[in-house]
Amino acid sequence: MAAAEPTPPPALSIKALGRDFNEATVLRGVELELAAGGSLAILGPNGAGKTTLLRIIAGLLRPSRGSLSVLGAELPRGRWQLRGRVGMLGHAPLLYRELSGRENLRFAARLHGLKDDGEGPIEALLEQVGMSRRADLRVEEMSAGMVQRLSLCRALLPQPELLLADEPLSHLDPGARRELAPLLGPAPGRTRVIVSHDPSTAQTEPGMVLGLGANGSQAFYIDSGELDLTILETLYGGGPK
C-alpha cells in the first residue's frame, strides 16, 4: 500500500499483534519491524507464545488482533502469496515415517515444483548435513538427531526467502550443532526468525532480539548488541541456564 517508499519494504512488519486461544490470551502487543535479509531471535520462557508467534508469521495461524505483513503479504488475507516462500523448521519434523529420507525430500521438492524433482539440491543438502549415506533409511528407523537434520533439509530445500526455525538445534549434540549452525546462518536473500531457549546464541549473532514475557506480552525488541544479563534475568526471572 505504501508504495512511495524508496527503501525496500521490510520482510516483517508486525503491529499490536495478539492471539487468543478461546479464553486465554497467549500473545499480546507484539510490535516489530525486520528488514529484508535481517535476522530475528525470539527469546522467552516456556509458554511465552514463541511458537504461536512463529506459526502466525508462517501464515499457519490467524492473529486475533493487530496486523502483520510478511514478505509484503498482508496476513491472514494474503496468505496464499506466502506459499512456497517460507521454510519452517518446527517441533514437528513434517516428514512421513514410512518413507525414506530421500523419498520425503523428493516429495517436498515435487510439491514445490522444483526442477528435476530437486535431485541436485537434495543431494547437496544431504551432503551438507552429513546424511548422504543414511538418507535411504525410513524416517521411523532414524534417531532424533537424524530426523532433525533431515527436517532441516526439508525446510531449506525450496530456498525460502524467510526461514522460520523453532529451537532448531535442540535434539543435537554439540558437535552436530557446530556442524549444522552454518546452514541456519545468514545467507543472501534470506530473512531468518529463530526461536531459541538459549540466549547465548542470540547474544553472539548480529541481528534483532525479541523478548516475550511469561504472559505472552512483548518485553523488549532490541539489537542483539544491547542484550545484557540484566535484561535476560528480568525476562527469565532468574538468568539464563
Binding site: 520462557p45 509458554g47 511469561a214 504472559n215 534475568e233 528480568t234 527469565y236 526471572g237 532468574g238
Partner: peptide, 16 residues
C-alpha cells in the same frame, strides 16, 4: 493471570 504467571517463576522476579 499475569501475577500468577510471575509468581510461578518461584518468586525470583520480586527481588529484581
Amino acid at each position: 493471570q499475569d501475577a500468577i504467571a510471575t509468581r510461578g517463576l518461584g518468586g525470583r522476579i520480586e527481588p529484581l
